[in-house]
Amino acid sequence: MTVSKVLRTPPADPAVAAAHFHRRFTFEADVADVHADIESGAGGFVLVDSRSAEAWAQGHIPGAVHLPTDDIVAGALPAGSVVVTYCWGPGCNGATRAAYAFASLGYQVKEMLGGFEYWSREGFAVEDVDGVRRGAPDPLTAPVAAGAVCGC
């Protein structure tokens, strides 16, 4: 009999799992939700790009504030701001470091999962020295049919 690698550690009790996944929502936002809030004007948060000046110049999310992690100090943003941090992508923990820095200073903060990589791979607007542009969505990460949405 083959033993399941997935189930060799049993799943959590449903109530414990629900609490865990709810907690994750208090710490994380995905690029589609951040994009939807920016597009609708819902806002309520400051989007912070924590990458270097060179990375920022290469491309960033329009409307984001550029604040490299080492520059995050008390008063860097208005008191009471809710902050959403991003960095390069899922292989980089720069947004996590920035979120930690903001939380340590008393800000409410979330990390944008996927970072700049998934923002651009989903075909959302990117700004650089030449202006704002949109790339085609990557069919491996985003719906490509006109009007299609992820639905998650």
Rank of each mutant, 00 (worst) to 15 (best):
K5N: 13
T26C: 10
I61P: 02
A99R: 00
G44D: 08
C152D: 11
E28H: 10
V82K: 12
Y107R: 06
V84Q: 00
D49G: 02
A103R: 07
G91R: 11
A29G: 03
P78R: 09
G43Y: 07
T69V: 15
L67F: 07
I72D: 05
A136I: 09
P90L: 15
S81P: 05
T26A: 14
S120R: 06
F102G: 01
P10C: 03
W88V: 11
N93R: 13
V149M: 06
A36L: 10
L140Q: 14
V126M: 00
V46Y: 07
K5L: 13
F21H: 06
D138V: 08
Y86S: 02
H22R: 14
L77W: 01
D71Q: 15
S120V: 05
L105K: 04
E111G: 06
V109D: 01
A95P: 05
G151L: 01
V6M: 12
A55D: 13
R51Q: 10
G75N: 09
G59I: 04
K110D: 04
L113K: 12
V73A: 14
V73D: 04
V16G: 02
A142R: 02
R51S: 03
A101P: 07
Q108M: 13
V149F: 09
P139E: 05
A98D: 05
E127W: 10
V6A: 15
A98T: 01
A64H: 04
F116T: 01
S120P: 04
G147I: 05
G80S: 06
V129L: 11
F21D: 07
P137E: 02
P143E: 01
L140H: 15
T26I: 06
A18I: 00
D49H: 05
V3W: 08
N93K: 08
L67K: 02
A57R: 12
D70H: 15
P68S: 11
H20E: 13
S4F: 09
A98C: 05
P143I: 05
F102C: 04
P68C: 14
P139Y: 07
S52M: 00
R23F: 14
C152Y: 09
G114R: 01
Q58G: 15
F25W: 12
M112E: 04
W119S: 00
A19D: 07
V65Y: 07
S81R: 02
A32N: 12
A12D: 11
H22Q: 14
C150T: 14
A79T: 06
V126G: 00
A57H: 08
G114V: 03
Q108L: 11
A98M: 06
A101F: 09
V65W: 07
G131I: 07
V83N: 01
S40M: 03
E39R: 14
V16D: 14
G106V: 05
G151Y: 07
Y100S: 13
R97H: 13
G43L: 10
